[in-house]
Design a protein around this nucleic acid. Sequence first.
DNA 1: CGACCGATTGATATGGATCAAAATTAGTGG
DNA 2: CCACTAATTTTGATCCATATCAATCGGTCG
Lengths: 243, 243
Amino acid sequence: MLMQKNQAFEHAEMTNETIYAGRSLSALFLASAMEPVSAGRAICWEGDEANHLFQVVEGVVRLYRIVGEGRRVITAFCFAGDLIGASLQSDFLFTAEAVTECRIRRVSRKSFHDEVARSDALHTAYISLLCQETAAAHEQMVLLSKKNAEERLCSFIAKLASRRNPQARQSLLRVPMNRQDIADHLGLTIETVSRTLTKLASRNVVAPEGRHDLRIVNLAVLTQLSGDADDFFEKSCHRVSLH
Amino acid sequence: MLMQKNQAFEHAEMTNETIYAGRSLSALFLASAMEPVSAGRAICWEGDEANHLFQVVEGVVRLYRIVGEGRRVITAFCFAGDLIGASLQSDFLFTAEAVTECRIRRVSRKSFHDEVARSDALHTAYISLLCQETAAAHEQMVLLSKKNAEERLCSFIAKLASRRNPQARQSLLRVPMNRQDIADHLGLTIETVSRTLTKLASRNVVAPEGRHDLRIVNLAVLTQLSGDADDFFEKSCHRVSLH
DNA sequence: CGACCGATTGATATGGATCAAAATTAGTGG
DNA sequence: CCACTAATTTTGATCCATATCAATCGGTCG
């Protein structure tokens, strides 16, 4: 049981808060049965009553909304350890679908909240998680609002890389989602994602190895190109000029 | 005192949860002194330690981040009754600036959390607020990711209108922010906002009256054009085809 | 009245979308 | 293991919505 729990958080490079929040809240799922979800299948649907929360134990999940005729927005990807539905009040505001083969656990919303209310530590962890979700959503708003295709893709890759999944010996990065998923997450088309990736490859920033792996050749440049490097030049300049 | 509190929530058209969340949490601010903030002045800065939460008692505030050289993203506008900084853990992730003359109150983060921890009702309200913030952020992600200029502007206006501020006799809507603010919130340029507005006016959807007022001529069409009308056609079609 | 600032309008440029193949890769059945 | 088919990705050609650059307009304030 404990092994299981730790396994879900094997990846390094998380903040202390994240680990704390994830760790303690994930204890609430340990009593639940593990459910396998095969790639492509839905875990919950937008509009349905949010009677459960889920934890991704293994695999990758996409959360998305459909807007108008066929336009899909992937608001987030969830990885091992992540909770699905923590920030919901009554209904699911997104559909959750397995990107890869997954294993998940579920708990009822009621029991989740009962447990959280019972423990200060869990409570803190829960608040912390909600705040992180908001922060992530804001980050994504910035990306969608002001970044060009290259910056978007570099941000995405850099973030994936910083998650440092187990498979990543040296600098080989697993990219479980397909091009369409990436496009729908970054607000681009599949063609633009492909072209941008080719361009990055030709500039020796990354080197695609098959559809689902990327060798990060130059992380420094990648970060630079992502547009949220701490080039304290620009940032401090602006900070000052605003006062 | 109580008058004050109610005044901040005079506008109708909010969900029950919103009212509840806002009402009870705003009690925490009543003991604090009212601080005037003149238009254009900052309330807090991105990067600073988030030692306080603020409540907007009167006026409108913009929350923004600066990305790269001079690109500004307004992640949200805050109105009377709204809290600023509820979803922050340690540092401010945005700068808050008065759009109009404002009056605000502040409480220390510590005392806020102490009080919230002490009351179940406050606690529920706080969670509720965080969830709403996340939902709003997701909504904005959809807008930035998949909507065109017209849909964005219509969404914005419709949302403003649904807030139904006091000045709104009949269908005259106050728009306190300038074109640049709107542009930076919608991920457009000032010119595109202006042109799109002109187009909407020529189609008799809205009628600008001065820089800061809009007469809503046809709310039905406005909602339709916003792209999140419940045209159960499309939606139900898609829901079905996905299963 | 003139200078200034925000908003509008106009002309042009462009990044990414769209439409259309071609090239890879993955699956399937023999 | 290989041939065949389907799906995904890449590449190419063209188009278009919005950005950019530039000029004008309308209100406001000294």
